[in-house]
Design a protein around this nucleic acid. Structure first.
Lengths: 348, 348
DNA sequence: CTGAAAGCGCTTACAG
DNA sequence: CTGAAAGCGCTTACAG
């Protein structure tokens, strides 16, 4: 950060005058364009340093380059999105791009307004994380600005890239793990989406859950409950599940964030985890490691997703027009919340 | 969101031609400036709607109005910052301003780069949350752009506004609460800051803690440990405290985020909370309510802080030049992690 | 290698 | 009430 006076705004003109060259020359030095002599370059660089000149992104944006990529996050309460941002930051570190984040608070209307606002800023490209908007709106956005979606399965999309975890496999891993640990009555606390499009999107995990249950001969135990993902809704759904006549032995939760609420409700009801109830989350966020949670989860490496998304986006900005669809392989991380059942002890 | 073709960019010119008026007229309608007839206005509005025209913020920014305020967040892992953003969003809801967030990941160098980048975008104003940068850098920033700081005590500042919680009082509340509950040996797990300036800033809570301990005749028990706030550092500090020869009865933690790590370490060491160790956090984030944490905390209402900051910033953008310094009153929220000691039971 | 000039999409005095 | 023109701070062909 360098000092500049408030009154006399320092522009490319000031620098040009100071260095005794043309405005165009300064611009070239700024952009490392060729066709500048060493002498001119060093003079200009000296002036820039002396004056503390900084190019205005807005003016550049008018000529096509905003040097900014926008990231749309549904909320920042869920720490999984921090992991994604870590990946984005890592990918952008040595580039000219800055990332600016818009937070939609999981509200469909805010999301639309935010995407429009970002498009209008403008941004060179957009990373939309788990968007709620319709396929049509995504299309409109992608037509205007290079776009990469995270957490939106649409492998046939041609207008934008997608970066996903193999959610079907993730759900299968969970069921397989729980079955191996001796649990058979496994419920799935899934996410209720506002938008019809996303029903298709999000059901990947439900598909995996169903398929795995069937394959393990547990189709009679299939039980999918959907809630909005807010703490209140998650708690209510957990209570319904746990106070019902047929309390499940295990609950597979849409996210860690929801699983933490389930753990809380279990404790409230006097249930001991995992003896009375096994709980599994999704995302393997840092909260899983805390021993008061000790939560088994599926690692879908938000960092890798964020990193890939940013890389793909830069490629798109640089001109790639064919779509890329990246699919990461999830990994189950077993912890105390799903320890194997010991039938002998159970009768004590 | 409205549809627009990729090829033919729709600008204010397109609209003017379509409506059969001048570019200036369209601009006036856009900005609700006076001096436009009803007839002209409705014609222009019809064209805007028909064409799906959206003004470019970058072009506007070049004339002074970016309609954007930047929020600098140190990290998004700590849910307290979500609360702040909720407040900012609430304040901005009915205004023309959009908020765009930069995440510094608590790194001093990233923070500087980000603030510069935001200033260059440019933004109409900046909200800096718990900045790590030096006083000099804050000054430079505030000279360039209207600025409000959250979590930076500097009541004499004239160039920018500040919004704070009364941190000294907050710490006093904690000590008072713990003493009333029967705890006397109370350690403070505080934050180690990189920058010398912030030592002054952050020590408010340490001042409050010290003063309250002295007032309660507990000066012999004063014990301040500082760690960087990362999960790893917090855990290490907690281990040192809890495995030392003189294990404290209670630990007051800089944030909930850190307190959660302390709870985890306590469990790892086989300590029962609050019987063997009381824990108190700060921020009263949503995690406190989870029964596996059941964490007593100080509510400094991030929402209120965010709301105030955004309001003050808008006033500044509109021309206020005198500084305002807002101080919120914290509130202690008692939960299970600091339940009163029962001396009789202790001997069992 | 270097620079004058046009233009990106708006807003803002200023005439009419 | 309405519009022509200058200008915000850059970049980009295009001459020289």
């Amino acid at each position: 950060m360098t000092i500049s006076q408030k009154n006399a705004r320092i522009t490319i003109r000031t620098v040009a005058a100071d260095a005794g060259v043309s405005v165009a020359a300064v611009s070239k030095v700024l952009r490392n364009a060729y066709g500048v002599s060493e002498d001119l370059r060093s003079r200009v660089e000296a002036s820039i340093a002396r004056l503390g000149y900084r190019p205005r992104a807005a003016a550049r944006a008018m000529r096509g380059q905003a040097d900014t990529i926008g990231v749309l996050l549904p909320d920042i309460r869920n720490p999984f999105f921090s992991d994604i941002m870590d990946g984005v930051h890592a990918a952008l570190e040595r580039t000219r791009y800055q990332s600016l984040v818009g937070i939609s608070q999981s509200a469909w209307s805010i999301e639309l307004a935010l995407v429009d606002a970002m498009t209008d800023r403008p941004m060179d490209g957009l990373i939309l994380v788990a968007p709620r908007m319709s396929a049509a709106d995504v299309t409109v956005t992608a037509l205007r600005t290079p776009t990469v979606l995270i957490g939106h399965h649409e492998p046939d999309a041609t207008l934008f890239d997608t970066v996903n975890d193999d959610d079907e496999l993730g759900a299968r891993l969970v069921v397989g793990h729980l079955v191996a640990a001796g649990y058979t009555d496994i419920a799935f606390l899934s996410l209720a989406m506002e938008d019809p499009m996303n029903l298709v999107v999000t059901s990947r995990r439900e598909i995996g859950y169903r398929a795995a249950m069937v394959e393990h001969g547990l189709s009679a135990h299939i039980d999918i409950v959907r809630a909005s993902g807010s703490p209140r809704a998650s708690q209510a759904a957990a209570r319904r599940l746990l106070q019902g006549r047929q309390r499940p032995q295990a609950i597979f939760c849409w996210t860690d964030f929801i699983a933490l609420e389930v753990l809380s409700v279990a404790r409230e009801l006097g249930l001991c985890v995992p003896r009375d109830l096994a709980v599994v989350g999704y995302d393997n966020t840092s909260y899983c490691d805390l021993l008061q949670n000790d939560l088994t989860s599926v690692d879908q490496s938000g960092q890798v997703l964020g990193l890939q998304a940013a890389r793909l986006l830069i490629e798109r900005i640089k001109g790639r027009t064919t779509a890329e669809h990246f699919l990461a392989t999830p990994r189950l991380v077993a912890r105390g919340s799903s320890r194997p059942r010991s039938p002998e002890r159970e009768t004590l």
